[in-house]
């Protein structure tokens, strides 16, 4: 990624949320702009209770009988069972949603540039279809010690560490909308990635802010994760 500061409304691709987080400083991503930081102590905030809009980070996915093979041929580890996730050393997180469906969430290290490369590889001839998750879904990342506490106010699935350890995935209802919740780690911090219909971007952002308030939660930028 480049280290240039940009104005989020100037890029070709835009997160639906950029006006809500206009007080952040933005960094450019391959096509868009991402909130880099809000204040000096973002990383402490992120370790306690932070919320980060990662929608501009590249992600992709494949579905079909040969999707697992295709993933392997691209050098991605394949989670053994549905609703599991694995994170590569380079930071990409592999999410298995069913027997035949896989998503790759780009790394914050390169804002998903490596995923862009992988997505360019032709998928094998039959029964492996690239998915639309870059556009169909928004991506918010909840971080810190209170992830489970925040989610308990929004979601009926038990997301405490003992029942939802890192590597767990839940496809469930969050504040009355469908969402995929992935428990993984970024820069040693526990995070929950929430992927959900992009149309609900502003809605879920506000709902999460409200739920985070009792834990002194606040928006954080990617710099909080050592980027």
């Amino acid at each position: 990624m480049t280290d240039t500061m940009v104005t989020p409304g100037d890029t070709l691709a835009r997160s639906g949320l950029y006006r809500k987080i206009a007080d952040a400083e933005f960094l450019s991503t391959p096509e868009s702009a991402i909130a880099a930081s809000y204040s000096a102590d973002d990383s402490e905030q992120a370790r306690n209770c932070g919320l980060c809009d990662l929608t501009p980070v590249i992600r992709t996915g494949w579905r079909g009988k040969t999707a697992a093979e295709h993933l392997q041929s691209l050098g991605y580890p394949v989670p053994e069972n549905p609703n599991q996730a694995l994170t590569k050393d380079s930071g990409e997180t592999l999410v298995r949603l069913s027997r035949t469906e896989f998503w790759v969430l780009g790394s914050l290290q390169d804002m998903g540039t490596a995923v862009t490369e992988a997505a360019r590889q032709p998928s094998p001839g039959s029964d492996c279809y690239p998915l639309f998750c870059q556009d169909s879904h928004a991506w918010l990342m909840l971080s810190g010690d209170h992830c489970a506490g925040v989610m308990a106010k929004l979601c009926g699935v038990d997301m405490r560490a003992q029942s939802f350890p890192p590597g767990s995935v839940a496809q469930t209802s969050v504040a009355r909308i469908n969402a995929i919740v992935v428990h993984h780690q970024v820069a040693g911090t526990d995070v929950f990635s929430l992927l959900f219909d992009a149309g609900y971007h502003a809605y879920l952002w506000d709902v999460l802010q409200d739920a985070m308030a009792e834990f002194s939660g606040a928006p954080v930028g990617v710099r909080a994760f050592g980027i």
Binding site: P82, N83, G156, V157, A170, Q171, T172, S173
Partner: peptide, 11 residues
């Protein structure tokens, strides 16, 4: 069968 036990409101 895919997601395990869930509240009926998810179905």
């Amino acid at each position: 069968p895919l997601n395990g036990p869930r509240n009926i409101s998810e179905f």
